[in-house]
Amino acid sequence: MQTEEMIPADEFCMHHNIELSFIYALQQSGLVEIIHAEEKIFVPVNELNRLEKLVRLYYEMDINLEGIETITYLLQRIHDLQQQIVQLNSRLGMYETE
């Protein structure tokens, strides 16, 4: 992945006024991906939305990492179930006649 597609983690931290250790903790929990390149730490651009949501949960709503992990898991589960409902409705539509 080229560095143009990544944001330096220290710049992200300065912009959001957070500690770099928070990003490391999220990475260790498997909640975000970080890249080590050129002796620097980068956040892929496609991770920025997720990372900003997690920052708000932690710093603005005062939810700890375990709570964030639980929320993330439940939101993913809801998304998966919604996808399953769409698929089942699609299959059911083949059998319905109006």
Rank of each mutant, 00 (worst) to 15 (best):
E98M: 06
L51V: 04
E96V: 10
Q76H: 12
M14K: 15
K53I: 04
I7G: 04
E33A: 10
V43C: 06
V43E: 03
Q87H: 08
L75K: 14
E66P: 03
Q2W: 13
E5T: 00
A25M: 14
I23Y: 01
R91H: 13
K40F: 03
I71Q: 03
R56E: 15
I41P: 02
S29M: 01
M61Y: 04
N46G: 13
R56D: 14
Y95L: 11
L92M: 05
R56L: 13
E19N: 08
I78M: 12
D10V: 07
Q28P: 04
I71P: 00
V55S: 01
L92D: 04
K40H: 04
N64C: 00
A37F: 01
L74C: 02
N64Y: 02
R50C: 03
K53Q: 12
P8E: 14
I7E: 05
D10T: 06
M94F: 11
H16A: 06
E5S: 03
S29I: 03
E69C: 02
L81N: 11
T72I: 03
M6V: 06
Q2N: 09
E98H: 08
Q2Y: 06
N64Q: 04
H79D: 15
N89W: 08
E66N: 05
E19R: 14
F22C: 05
L81F: 14
T97W: 00
I18V: 10
V86A: 13
Q28Y: 13
D62P: 13
V32G: 09
K40T: 00
M14H: 15
G67A: 09
M14G: 09
N64T: 08
I41E: 10
N49M: 02
M61T: 06
N46Q: 11
M94P: 00
Q87C: 06
I23G: 06
E47S: 09
E38I: 04
Y24C: 00
L48T: 09
L48V: 15
H36W: 05
E11R: 04
E4D: 10
M94C: 07
N89M: 12
M14A: 13
E47D: 13
E19C: 03
I7C: 07
V32N: 07
P44R: 02
V55D: 06
E69G: 03
V45Y: 02
E60F: 13
R56F: 14
L92T: 12
R50A: 06
C13Y: 11
Q84N: 09
K40C: 09
L88R: 14
I23S: 11
I41H: 14
G67F: 04
R56Y: 13
Q28C: 07
E19Q: 10
E60D: 15
L51P: 01
Q76D: 14
N17Y: 11
I68Q: 02
Q28D: 11
